[in-house]
Design a protein around this nucleic acid. Structure first.
Lengths: 197, 197
DNA sequence: AAGTGTTGCTAACATGTGTTAGTTGTTTTA
DNA sequence: TAAAACAACTAACACATGTTAGCAACACTT
């Protein structure tokens, strides 16, 4: 009876959640079965239920841990005393690095949240809506200050967020540029598309 | 026994494919069942099989009809005698309009192609890879001509394509700006992020 | 009106799914 | 070392899934 290996400070549940992120990313939430997950973890499917309540619980954990990180970051951003365009750039860099370093989690949260069940679903959608509004508000301030082009702020947010999710393709590509180059290129194009002049 | 309604020139299969696009978009390919689809079409699940071979056939049809449209467009673009940046802009406008007018199909093709089965899967992935290379080649020419900033072309392609898929959120938003405004805003930001100066 | 192909129905199957019950083995605690 | 807690196992259930077989109703041609 081979137990799930754990280093200290990493619970067996964490191991499962991490493997679940990789699996959900690869196959999609619906297509990934608990038996697949069990195999990845090295255990029988039923054994997983000693550590988790349900398959969807795994999705909750992933979605909300990501959502919380972004919420904290935008809290932080709003209080900083820098120009709007710098706020946007910092936020973008955070998004980019999250996508680079916590690829599977962020990707799953982004693509698979539809499969959450209420009340988690509405909760998540709310957070998402609020986050985007706050992001748009930063851009609108920038427009009023003439730092940023006259554009529709919600559209700009939409472009930024989705553009960053393209890092998915970078991850899977064989001949990648370095993470640093990727970040700089993205910032050049995205911030370049916003700034006035 | 209520038949599937068809206007002339629209086969019953086309009706099914169209409803499938809407359903796959809403729930995802895996989560959408043939019984769901049957209900949307107004018929029993088994009856669908008088018109189609399998569930995945529906996905093939959707994915490849979209892929073909983009392939034809880039063929056309490559032969036009205009500057690289204009080619990019035209291509972007095409992407934007496809996403606006054939939302469900394009979205499904973009998000659900993973569930294709070989040989369709490899075929699709190949087409995708080739398309992006050709898009990147246009950008690289623009960089050599100094029309476009010195950036990593594949990264730029990645940003453009994913940014456009953000139109998904526009579709679902309640207080939308018009399609024309959306197009102009996207072009402003995206092309603005590319051009030199 | 008869015949023929088309399109629908019901019933069913085989398989895969998430999950629970009950039990056995393994660690940790006392 | 015995007791208590934990984590694995096997077996099974209830249900949803894609799909097929066989048959009935419809529509169009002659």
């Amino acid at each position: 009876m081979a137990r799930i290996k754990t280093d200290k400070n990493i619970s067996r549940k964490d191991v499962i959640v991490t493997k679940a992120a990789a699996l959900f990313r690869e196959k999609g939430f619906k297509a990934a079965s608990m038996r697949d997950l069990a195999e990845a973890v090295g255990v029988e499917a039923a054994s997983l239920y000693n550590h988790i309540k349900s398959k969807t619980e795994l999705l909750h954990e992933l979605c909300f841990s990501v959502a919380n990180r972004f919420m904290h970051k935008i809290d932080e951003m709003e209080t900083e005393q820098i120009s709007s365009i710098d706020k946007v750039e910092k936020l973008l860099r955070f998004h980019i690095n999250e996508m680079i370093n916590h690829y599977e989690e962020v990707y799953v949260s982004d693509r698979e949240w539809k499969h959450l069940a209420d009340p988690y679903l509405s909760n998540f959608q709310n957070q998402r809506r609020i986050y985007r509004k706050r992001f748009a508000a930063i851009i609108e301030t920038g427009i009023r200050n003439k730092e940023i082009k006259k554009i529709d702020a919600p559209t700009a947010v939409l472009i930024m967020l989705h553009a960053i999710s393209g890092i998915e393709s970078w991850h899977r590509s064989t001949q990648k540029i370095s993470a640093e180059e990727l970040e700089e290129n993205m910032i050049t194009i995205l911030v370049g598309g916003l700034v006035n002049r």
